[in-house]
Protein backbone atom coordinates (compact mmCIF):
# COMPACT_ATOMS: atom_id res chain seq x y z
CA UNK A 1 0.00 0.00 0.00
CA UNK A 2 2.48 2.63 1.04
CA UNK A 3 5.42 3.47 3.24
CA UNK A 4 3.67 2.13 6.30
CA UNK A 5 3.98 -1.35 4.83
CA UNK A 6 7.74 -1.17 5.18
CA UNK A 7 7.76 -0.61 8.94
CA UNK A 8 9.13 -3.65 10.77
CA UNK A 9 6.67 -5.40 13.05
CA UNK A 10 6.63 -4.46 16.68
CA UNK A 11 5.34 -1.69 18.86
CA UNK A 12 5.84 1.01 16.23
CA UNK A 13 3.82 -0.89 13.66
CA UNK A 14 0.88 -1.47 15.96
CA UNK A 15 0.79 2.23 16.77
CA UNK A 16 0.87 3.16 13.11
CA UNK A 17 -1.81 0.55 12.45
CA UNK A 18 -4.11 2.14 14.98
CA UNK A 19 -3.51 5.58 13.62
CA UNK A 20 -3.92 4.60 9.97
CA UNK A 21 -6.98 2.52 10.74
CA UNK A 22 -8.59 5.39 12.61
CA UNK A 23 -7.98 7.82 9.78
CA UNK A 24 -8.94 5.51 6.96
CA UNK A 25 -12.08 4.49 8.74
CA UNK A 26 -13.32 8.02 9.08
CA UNK A 27 -12.58 9.21 5.59
CA UNK A 28 -14.07 6.53 3.39
CA UNK A 29 -14.89 8.11 0.07
CA UNK A 30 -17.33 6.02 -1.90
CA UNK A 31 -17.23 5.87 -5.69
CA UNK A 32 -20.58 6.55 -7.32
CA UNK A 33 -21.32 3.19 -8.73
CA UNK A 34 -25.07 3.18 -8.90
CA UNK A 35 -26.51 0.57 -11.22
CA UNK A 36 -30.15 -0.11 -10.53
CA UNK A 37 -32.87 0.29 -7.92
CA UNK A 38 -30.40 -0.02 -5.05
CA UNK A 39 -28.62 3.08 -6.33
CA UNK A 40 -31.66 5.17 -5.52
CA UNK A 41 -31.46 4.07 -1.91
CA UNK A 42 -27.75 4.83 -2.00
CA UNK A 43 -28.59 8.31 -3.23
CA UNK A 44 -31.10 8.64 -0.41
CA UNK A 45 -28.35 7.84 2.07
CA UNK A 46 -26.22 10.51 0.52
CA UNK A 47 -28.83 13.20 0.06
CA UNK A 48 -31.76 12.76 2.39
CA UNK A 49 -31.16 14.69 5.56
CA UNK A 50 -32.80 11.89 7.50
CA UNK A 51 -29.93 9.48 6.86
CA UNK A 52 -27.00 11.74 6.14
CA UNK A 53 -23.98 9.62 5.52
CA UNK A 54 -21.82 12.66 6.29
CA UNK A 55 -22.05 11.74 9.95
CA UNK A 56 -19.75 8.83 9.19
CA UNK A 57 -17.27 10.73 7.08
CA UNK A 58 -18.42 9.30 3.78
CA UNK A 59 -20.48 12.02 2.18
CA UNK A 60 -17.99 12.78 -0.56
CA UNK A 61 -19.17 10.50 -3.33
CA UNK A 62 -16.40 10.61 -5.89
CA UNK A 63 -17.06 10.30 -9.57
CA UNK A 64 -13.46 9.50 -10.35
CA UNK A 65 -12.45 6.04 -9.19
CA UNK A 66 -8.95 7.33 -8.57
CA UNK A 67 -10.20 9.45 -5.70
CA UNK A 68 -12.42 6.86 -4.11
CA UNK A 69 -11.62 4.05 -1.78
CA UNK A 70 -14.96 2.35 -1.28
CA UNK A 71 -16.93 0.97 -4.18
CA UNK A 72 -20.59 0.47 -3.34
CA UNK A 73 -21.87 -1.84 -6.04
CA UNK A 74 -25.51 -0.81 -5.84
CA UNK A 75 -27.57 -2.95 -8.14
CA UNK A 76 -27.50 -5.80 -10.60
CA UNK A 77 -24.39 -6.32 -12.70
CA UNK A 78 -25.06 -7.52 -16.21
CA UNK A 79 -22.61 -9.42 -18.35
CA UNK A 80 -22.18 -6.29 -20.41
CA UNK A 81 -21.38 -4.18 -17.35
CA UNK A 82 -19.01 -6.65 -15.67
CA UNK A 83 -15.86 -5.66 -17.61
CA UNK A 84 -16.58 -1.99 -16.92
CA UNK A 85 -17.00 -2.73 -13.24
CA UNK A 86 -13.68 -4.53 -13.16
CA UNK A 87 -11.93 -1.72 -14.97
CA UNK A 88 -13.20 0.83 -12.50
CA UNK A 89 -12.15 -1.36 -9.63
CA UNK A 90 -8.68 -1.64 -11.11
CA UNK A 91 -8.49 2.12 -11.48
CA UNK A 92 -9.14 2.68 -7.80
CA UNK A 93 -5.97 3.09 -5.79
CA UNK A 94 -5.31 0.83 -2.83
CA UNK A 95 -6.31 0.49 -0.10
CA UNK A 96 -9.80 -0.10 -1.47
CA UNK A 97 -12.91 -1.88 -0.33
CA UNK A 98 -15.99 -3.23 -2.07
CA UNK A 99 -19.48 -3.28 -0.63
CA UNK A 100 -21.98 -5.47 -2.47
CA UNK A 101 -25.28 -3.70 -1.89
CA UNK A 102 -28.47 -5.65 -2.32
CA UNK A 103 -29.40 -9.18 -3.25
CA UNK A 104 -28.45 -8.72 -6.90
CA UNK A 105 -24.91 -7.55 -6.29
CA UNK A 106 -24.40 -10.20 -3.63
CA UNK A 107 -25.80 -13.22 -5.42
CA UNK A 108 -27.71 -12.32 -8.54
CA UNK A 109 -30.86 -12.00 -6.46
CA UNK A 110 -34.09 -12.93 -8.17
CA UNK A 111 -32.54 -12.75 -11.64
CA UNK A 112 -31.06 -16.18 -12.16
CA UNK A 113 -30.74 -15.90 -15.92
CA UNK A 114 -28.60 -15.30 -18.98
CA UNK A 115 -28.06 -11.60 -18.44
CA UNK A 116 -26.97 -11.11 -14.86
CA UNK A 117 -23.69 -11.98 -13.16
CA UNK A 118 -24.60 -14.15 -10.19
CA UNK A 119 -22.86 -12.01 -7.61
CA UNK A 120 -20.14 -9.41 -8.14
CA UNK A 121 -17.71 -11.57 -6.24
CA UNK A 122 -17.21 -13.30 -9.57
CA UNK A 123 -15.63 -10.09 -10.79
CA UNK A 124 -14.13 -8.22 -7.83
CA UNK A 125 -13.29 -9.25 -4.25
CA UNK A 126 -16.09 -8.20 -1.91
CA UNK A 127 -15.45 -7.05 1.65
CA UNK A 128 -18.98 -6.86 2.92
CA UNK A 129 -22.31 -8.14 1.63
CA UNK A 130 -25.50 -6.29 2.36
CA UNK A 131 -28.75 -8.21 1.90
CA UNK A 132 -32.08 -6.67 1.00
CA UNK A 133 -33.99 -5.76 -2.11
CA UNK A 134 -33.36 -2.87 -1.83
CA UNK A 135 -31.70 -2.63 1.59
CA UNK A 136 -33.04 0.22 3.68
CA UNK A 137 -30.80 3.26 3.97
CA UNK A 138 -30.27 2.39 7.62
CA UNK A 139 -28.97 -0.99 6.53
CA UNK A 140 -26.47 0.65 4.23
CA UNK A 141 -25.32 2.87 7.06
CA UNK A 142 -24.97 -0.17 9.25
CA UNK A 143 -22.92 -1.95 6.60
CA UNK A 144 -20.64 1.03 6.29
CA UNK A 145 -20.17 1.19 10.06
CA UNK A 146 -19.38 -2.52 10.15
CA UNK A 147 -16.88 -2.02 7.36
CA UNK A 148 -15.34 0.86 9.25
CA UNK A 149 -14.84 -1.42 12.24
CA UNK A 150 -13.13 -3.87 9.94
CA UNK A 151 -10.92 -1.15 8.56
CA UNK A 152 -10.09 0.12 12.03
CA UNK A 153 -8.62 -3.22 12.94
CA UNK A 154 -6.78 -3.81 9.69
CA UNK A 155 -3.23 -4.87 10.27
CA UNK A 156 -0.32 -3.61 8.24
CA UNK A 157 2.93 -4.92 6.86
CA UNK A 158 4.22 -8.09 8.48
CA UNK A 159 1.17 -8.37 10.75
CA UNK A 160 -1.11 -8.23 7.74
CA UNK A 161 0.83 -10.87 5.88
CA UNK A 162 0.53 -13.08 8.93
CA UNK A 163 -3.24 -12.59 9.07
CA UNK A 164 -3.70 -13.24 5.39
CA UNK A 165 -1.84 -16.49 5.81
CA UNK A 166 -4.04 -17.51 8.73
CA UNK A 167 -7.26 -16.66 6.98
CA UNK A 168 -6.20 -18.53 3.88
CA UNK A 169 -5.33 -21.59 5.92
CA UNK A 170 -8.66 -21.47 7.71
CA UNK A 171 -10.47 -21.18 4.40
CA UNK A 172 -8.62 -24.15 3.01
CA UNK A 173 -9.48 -26.34 5.96
CA UNK A 174 -13.09 -25.25 6.14
CA UNK A 175 -15.79 -27.73 5.25
CA UNK A 176 -17.30 -26.91 1.86
CA UNK A 177 -20.96 -25.96 2.04
CA UNK A 178 -22.02 -28.82 -0.21
CA UNK A 179 -20.74 -31.23 2.42
CA UNK A 180 -22.78 -29.65 5.18
CA UNK A 181 -25.75 -31.96 5.17
CA UNK A 182 -28.74 -31.96 7.39
CA UNK A 183 -30.78 -29.18 8.84
CA UNK A 184 -30.49 -25.83 7.14
CA UNK A 185 -29.31 -24.19 10.30
Amino acid sequence: MGLEEKIPSGFLLTTVEKLAGYMRKNSLWPATFGLACCAIEMMAVGSAAKYDIARFGSEVFRASPRQADLMIVAGRVSNKMAPVLRQIYDQMSAPKWVLAMGACASSGGMFNNYAIVQGVDHVVPVDIYLPGCPPRPEMLLDAIIKLQEQINDTKLGANRAQIIKEVELAAMNAKPTHEMKGLLA
Binding site: N112, N113, H178
Partner: peptide
Protein backbone atom coordinates in the same frame (compact mmCIF):
# COMPACT_ATOMS: atom_id res chain seq x y z
CA UNK B 1 -26.67 -7.57 -25.30
CA UNK B 2 -22.89 -7.22 -25.77
CA UNK B 3 -21.85 -7.09 -29.42
CA UNK B 4 -20.19 -10.47 -29.36
CA UNK B 5 -23.12 -12.29 -27.77
CA UNK B 6 -24.23 -15.48 -29.43
CA UNK B 7 -27.87 -16.30 -29.96
CA UNK B 8 -31.04 -14.29 -29.47
CA UNK B 9 -32.05 -14.59 -25.83
CA UNK B 10 -35.82 -14.15 -25.93
CA UNK B 11 -36.54 -16.84 -28.48
CA UNK B 12 -38.25 -19.87 -27.05
CA UNK B 13 -35.39 -22.15 -28.09
CA UNK B 14 -32.91 -20.10 -26.06
CA UNK B 15 -32.68 -21.35 -22.50
CA UNK B 16 -33.22 -18.91 -19.68
CA UNK B 17 -29.70 -19.77 -18.66
CA UNK B 18 -29.83 -19.68 -14.88
CA UNK B 19 -27.53 -21.72 -12.71
CA UNK B 20 -28.41 -24.34 -10.12
CA UNK B 21 -28.03 -23.20 -6.54
CA UNK B 22 -26.61 -25.55 -3.98
CA UNK B 23 -26.94 -25.07 -0.28
CA UNK B 24 -25.94 -27.63 2.32
CA UNK B 25 -26.42 -30.60 0.09
Amino acid sequence: MPDDWEGHPQRKDYSLGGIAVEYKG
